[in-house]
């Protein structure tokens, strides 16, 4: 498999604290890579840095061979890097359908002129109903995010990230707060993504989900990579067991 995301020597420090320390790993095209590690290991910071939310980050990030360094967050998103947030962060003023629409539509410079005259033209031909169907969100399409359960909000967050048609989607604890049925829906969806051309970088604490869907694992501890590779190899790595999985895993 060719490399889709290549991260090398990524480093983020907040003052004297080094949150991410020379992190390097590769996500192959079509892979579901799990990023695991104890709390405070730098998982979310890594995602923030990859997506351009931390201007202070140094290191090199390439997506499909193209360097993302120096690009702003929205430019990286347009380059094919989608993401969700641990705190979900939906657009509370928009309905669920609009949350997906606004992510799916790419404006051109003349779009505002068209929009002022023909408001519906911009959404013509943009289909987000399938995505909502896939996530079981049809019933709440016109609801506001604030009216949904936490699990539903998580799913809307994932659906919105996918609506941008990313090549790689970075999911930050998408299963947190989901009930077992919702987790199962999410797991099936994640497993189906590579076939649809979307690779995944997944952060979560639900080890059943992680071991079930991830074919690759990267383990972070205190901001450093302690192991990275196929799931089967990483889960038996003694360093990983000592740092994170514990004796019983």
């Amino acid at each position: 498999m060719s490399a889709l995301l290549e991260v090398s020597e990524l480093r983020v420090s907040f003052g004297a604290l080094v949150a991410v320390d020379d992190v390097s790993f590769t996500v192959p095209t079509g892979a579901i890579m799990g990023l695991i590690g104890p709390n405070g290991a730098g998982k979310t910071t890594t995602i923030d840095a990859l997506c351009g939310f931390l201007p202070a980050a140094v290191g090199s990030i390439r997506l499909g061979g193209v360097a993302l360094d120096g690009l702003r967050a929205h430019q990286r998103a347009r380059a094919g890097l989608g993401r969700t947030f641990q705190t979900v962060e939906l657009f509370d003023d928009l309905s669920v359908r609009e949350n997906l629409l606004v992510a799916a539509i790419r404006p051109r410079w003349w779009s505002p002129f068209v929009d002022a005259v023909a408001p519906r033209r911009g959404t013509r031909g943009v289909n987000v109903d399938d995505a909502m169907g896939l996530m079981g969100l049809d019933a709440v399409a016109d609801a506001r995010p604030t009216e949904l359960s936490h699990g539903q909000r998580q799913l809307v967050g994932v659906a919105r990230a996918l609506a941008t048609r990313p090549r790689l989607v970075l999911l930050d604890e998408p299963a947190a707060g989901l009930d077992p049925a919702e987790t199962a829906v999410l797991g099936r969806l994640l497993a189906s993504l590579p076939a649809a051309g979307v690779s995944v970088l997944l952060v979560d604490h639900d080890m059943n989900l992680m071991l079930g869907v991830c074919d690759q694992l990267t383990v972070l501890d205190f901001g450093r990579v302690i192991a990275s590779g196929p799931t089967a190899a990483v889960r038996t790595d003694p360093a990983v067991i000592a740092a994170y999985l514990g004796g019983g895993a």
């Binding site: 351009g52 967050a73 962060e89 606004v102």
Partner: peptide, 11 residues
């Protein structure tokens, strides 16, 4: 409603 999330979807 959310500048970070907006940037994350390419706005």
């Amino acid at each position: 409603s959310n500048e970070r999330a907006a940037a994350a979807v390419g706005i």
